[in-house]
Amino acid sequence: MHYDFIPQPEREKLVFPNGKTIAVILTTNLEYWDKERDDPAPYYPGGPGIVGGTLPGNVYDNPNWTWREYGQRVGVWRMFDVFEAEGIPTSCTMNAKMALERRPVIEAAMARGYEIVPHNFVQTDLLTDFAHDKDAERAVIRETLKVYRDVVGKPARGWLSSSLRSTLNTADILAEEGLTFFTDLLNDDQPYLINTECGRDLVSISYTSEVNDFTVFMRQGMDVDGAIKVFKEQFDWLRGEAITQGSGRVMNIGLHPHVVGQPFRIRALRDFLRYVKQFDDIWFCSREELADWYLDHCAQGAPEKRAV
C-alpha cells in the first residue's frame, strides 16, 4: 500500500455532482460478537463496554455481551425508523457473522436499499492478528467476502476492518480481490487514491473515530445535546470550507446501534438529520457511489495519479 502526501492547498478542486458541496455518509455498523473464544487471552470487543474490566476470551461476559446485543434486537430498528422517517439513507457495515447469526437485520437493511460494506468476519477478531501472515489475512478476507456475496447477492465493492485494525497488507489484498474502496484510513476529508502492489488503485473514503457515537457518548461522556453540537459543528465547518474553497468535503459519522440506538440518545441522530436536511447542497451518497464518481471524474487528474 502506498499513497502520496498531497497537502490540501495543492489539490485539484473537487466538484461534486449537481453543485453539491459536501457528501454526508451516516455509517451504521452492524456487528456481531462471539460470546466466547477458544483463547484465554483478554477478549477484545472493538469498543468500550458498559461494565468495566476485561475478562479472558474463554469466559462469557454477560453484561457487556447482552448490552451489545441490545443494538441488534432493539437499537438498530429504532435507527432504521429514524432514517426512514427523515428520508435519509445510511451506509451499513456488516460482519460476516452478523449476516449468519442475525440475518433479519441484514435483510431489513437490504429491503430499504441501504449500502452494505464488509466489516471483517467477526467483530472480536482483528486483521492485525495476521500482521505478519499475509496468506492467513487473505483467507479471512476471502471468507468474509464469500459470506457477503452469498447473503447480499453480489460481490462486495469496499471494506472496513473491525476497529479499523488493518495491516500494511490489507489494501493490497483487497485490490487483488477486485474491491474498489477502502474505509480504514482516518487521514482526510476528501477521497484519494491508494496505490497497491497489483497495480489496481483503491479509493480511500476516510472513516472517523472522533465524530462517532462511541467517542462523544462513551469516551467523552456527552449528553444528547452535546453530541448534536459536535455533529453540527463538524458539518458547518466542512461545508463552509467547501463553499469558500470551491472544493467538496466528505463528512462521515460512525454509529453503533447499541450506543446511539438507546432511547435516551436517539434524538441526537434524529435532530442532526433534521438539521442537515434544510440545506440543498448536500449529497447523501453511499461509499460505492462516491468511489465510482471519484474514479470516473477525478482519479486520472488527481495529483497522486500524475505523480506516478
Score class of each variant (00 low, 15 high):
Val51His: 06
Arg142Asn: 11
Val224Tyr: 13
His297Leu: 08
Met94Asp: 00
Gly226Ser: 10
Glu177Val: 06
Glu304Trp: 14
Val224Pro: 12
Ala109Arg: 08
Glu12His: 13
Gln72Gly: 13
Asp184His: 11
Leu26Cys: 15
Asn195Tyr: 15
Gln234Tyr: 08
Leu174Arg: 03
Val82Pro: 01
Tyr114Val: 02
Met110Asp: 05
Glu10Cys: 12
Met1Leu: 11
Val59Pro: 00
Tyr44Ile: 08
Thr215Asp: 08
Glu137Pro: 05
Arg274Cys: 04
Ala171Gly: 10
Ile116Gly: 02
Ser163Asp: 06
Val117Trp: 06
Phe272Gly: 00
Leu164Gln: 05
Gln300Arg: 03
Ala175Ser: 07
Gly87Gln: 05
Gly221Gln: 10
Lys277Leu: 09
Ser162Leu: 02
Asp81Ala: 07
Gly246Asn: 02
Ala23Ser: 11
Val216Pro: 03
Lys97Ala: 08
Lys229Arg: 06
Asp34Gln: 09
Arg138Lys: 15
Gly49Leu: 05
Ile282Tyr: 13
Asp34Glu: 07
Ile50Cys: 10
Val15Met: 10
Pro89Trp: 02
Pro263Ile: 09
Glu177Leu: 12
Leu174Met: 06
Val260Ser: 05
His2Asn: 11
Gly71Cys: 01
Ala108Phe: 04
Glu241Phe: 00
Thr244Gln: 02
Glu115Arg: 07
Asp4Val: 15
Trp33Met: 12
Trp293Tyr: 15
Gly158Met: 02
Pro7Asn: 10
Glu69His: 01
Asn64Glu: 02
Asn169Ala: 14
Ala41Arg: 12
Gln220Ser: 03
Val140His: 15
His2Val: 15
Arg157Val: 13
Trp237Glu: 10
Pro42Cys: 08
Arg102Gln: 05
Trp77Asp: 04
Trp283Asn: 12
Asp133Pro: 11
Gln278Asp: 12
Glu36Tyr: 15
Gly158Cys: 03
Leu168Ser: 04
Arg200Gln: 13
Asp281Lys: 15
Val308Arg: 14
Ile205Phe: 01
Leu100Asn: 00
Ala139Pro: 03
Ile228His: 04
Ile22Gly: 04
Met98Gln: 13
Trp293Ile: 12
Met79Trp: 04
Arg200Thr: 14
Met79His: 08
Lys97Asn: 00
Asn58Trp: 07
Phe181Asp: 00
Val151Gly: 01
Asp201Gly: 03
Glu36His: 11
Asp223Gly: 11
Phe279Asn: 02
Tyr43Ala: 00
Asp172Trp: 10
